[in-house]
Structures are given as C-alpha cells and as structure tokens.
Nucleic acid binder design. Sequence first.
DNA 1: GTAGCTGCAAAGCATTTGCATTACT
DNA 2: AGTAATGCAAATGCTTTGCAGCTAC
Lengths: 141, 141
Amino acid sequence: MSQGNAFYCALKKKGLRLTVQRKAVIDCLAASGKPLGAEDIFLQIQERGLGINLATVYRTLDTLAEEGLVEQVAMDLSRARYALCRERQHLHHFFCLGCGESYDLPYCPVKERSMEELLPEAYTVTGHRYEVYGYCRRCNA
Amino acid sequence: MSQGNAFYCALKKKGLRLTVQRKAVIDCLAASGKPLGAEDIFLQIQERGLGINLATVYRTLDTLAEEGLVEQVAMDLSRARYALCRERQHLHHFFCLGCGESYDLPYCPVKERSMEELLPEAYTVTGHRYEVYGYCRRCNA
DNA sequence: GTAGCTGCAAAGCATTTGCATTACT
DNA sequence: AGTAATGCAAATGCTTTGCAGCTAC
C-alpha cells in the first residue's frame, strides 16, 4: 500500500483498472528488495491471506511490463523474474549466487558512455541489460 | 570443421568424447554469427543432412556450457540462446529487435571499470551479463 | 571391452489461453 | 450497465529424464 501508490496512479492514468490483485502484485514487488518470479509473488500474496490465481499474476506482470512499470530480469534464465522500475535510476543488479539476494548497482554502463560512440552509425539503442553475478559478504565466508 | 577445431581439442582435453553430433553443434554455432536456440541448431544440422535428436542438442549445449565453451545469452527470455565463448574478448552483443541479428559489442563495462570500486567490500564478482537492444541500420529504414 | 553418448518417448515445468463469471468505474 | 479483469482448467512449448542400444577411445 505504501510505496506502491505511484504505481497505482500510473495504472489508473493509463485507463487500466485498479483491482485488489494488481495492488497485491505491486505491493509484493515493492516490499521485496529483489526481483521475484511469478510463483514467488503468487505464494507471498497467498500467505498474506489474499486469494489470487497464478494466471492472474502472469497477466498482471505482462500488463505492468507493457506499461513500463515492471521490468524482466535475466538473473535466472530458467524462469522470468520481475522488478518494479524506478523513475530515476536504471535497474541494474548484483546477484549473489550463494543466497540469491540482489543488491542495486549504482552504475549504468550505457549512462557512462554514450552508445553512439560504440556502435556503427545509424544504429538505434532502445534498451539494455546489465547484471553482475558473484558472492556477497556473508556468502564469502 | 574449420573454426571449431579449437573447441574439438578443448573437449578432448577435458576427457569428453568427440562425437559427430557434438562436432555438428560446435560447427553450427561457429558458422552462425549470432546466438542460436536449441531448435535453431537442431534444424540447421538436419538441413545439412546430418541426423540429430533435439534432446542431444540440449545435452550437448549443457555439456559445452559446463566446460565453459559456450555461454547462455539472455536476448529472448522465453527461450535460451547459446553462443561459443571466445578466448580474448567477452561475449557482449547488440541485438536488433527488427531483424533479430546480433552484432558484437567492442566494449565491456566490467573491463573498463573494476567492479571492486563499485561494490561494497568483501563482495566477489564471478560473472556478468551485458546486452544492448535496438535497431540496426537496415531496420531503421 | 566399456564407459560415455545418443535416440526415443514420456515426463516436467513455466507460461499462456479460452471461456464463463465477477467486479471496477 | 458495460467492459475489463479474474478464476479455472486445459493447452502449449521449451527443456529434461529414464532407459536401451550404440560408438568413440
């Protein structure tokens, strides 16, 4: 409820309905510090006592992604993970291969060096993905 | 046969058998400029008249990936793509959303700036992913 | 000769879809 | 009221697996 408010508004502005299920998905992603898979979201919502269908979670994530409110993360190629998009900073993560936690990377390669100087002429860049893998402090012990 | 030779040797060195099917998969990836999915590889090998089973393609790609000879590419999260690893330069790609072609990126964010200066202390980096999406010259018209 | 591979067919999962019902606006 | 969204269950599609037969070494 708290942090998700901006996302509620964004949905309404786009003419989409603000349902209990959509709120729940947004809240869940907002509460979690790390990217979540559809099943994770489904289970967490159920734990909170709210009923929701897995198919609805998938459809909601699809919708949010289309509206640019959520982004797919490649961390684990065998299942899609999603994270809320933040306004100013890009979504770049460090993933701990030990505990699975993720931490924000305060660095975006595309921001630092313009793509134009790296690509042939007449190419257009519309997006990018940048993720780093390794072990966090705790798991290094 | 041509470019894949180094990969044949690598397999043998690791005590793995050099079968017709494994050669075919390596050759296919070496011949293609862009990352391929298992099905792509399967079809291309069949077109060349060689028989192979899809399951074998998957198993071969798994094996090659375990040995560090092949890398999964995140381009399309709905199906895994693979590319041969090259010795010196990292695997970073620009993907054209129009025609699906991929072009090598002559730039690696991790090489340019050491990760240590960007991450908290006692973190270890073992790998990363960096991919750029957009439109190539031809598709921009 | 023998362990490692392959082929085949069936199983496993994540994700999607069709359709009737429900509930935002 | 009307339409978009949900639930349910079945379908889809990529990927994996068990097992018997084959083959590289």
